[in-house]
Amino acid sequence: MQDVQVLISGIPLNNYIYICAALFGIGALGVMIRRNAIVLFMCIELMLNAVNLLLVAFSSYLGDNSGQVFVFFIMAVAAAEVAVGLAILIMVYRNAQTSDTEVLNQLKW
């Protein structure tokens, strides 16, 4: 199967590294500057996806299957994380009536 070579032959691996670094940076920026807890979760998903994309790119360029299996496990963990995280968020919202992270500061030194 020659598809991989033909498809990605014109694209340097560095392009994927730039795109993934930018996606990860945007996600981290969102975690820092937003105050809504649910948007924070979405930004964490963005960061996870940037890492996944880079793993798949490395795996395809190296011709090694293991990277794609790692991505599979990362997706499983991400799904579990979102389920538990949103349950925690609902519980916090029920107790504090807000999802603003600046109001939820009882653990802040």
């Binding site: 199967m1 598809d3 991989v4 070579q5 795996s59 395809s60 360029y61 011709g63 794609q68």
Partner: peptide, 12 residues
């Protein structure tokens, strides 16, 4: 790029 030639097994 040195290893891209190995990528013929249809991974993925």
């Amino acid at each position: 790029p040195s290893n891209i030639a190995n990528n013929v097994g249809g991974i993925g």
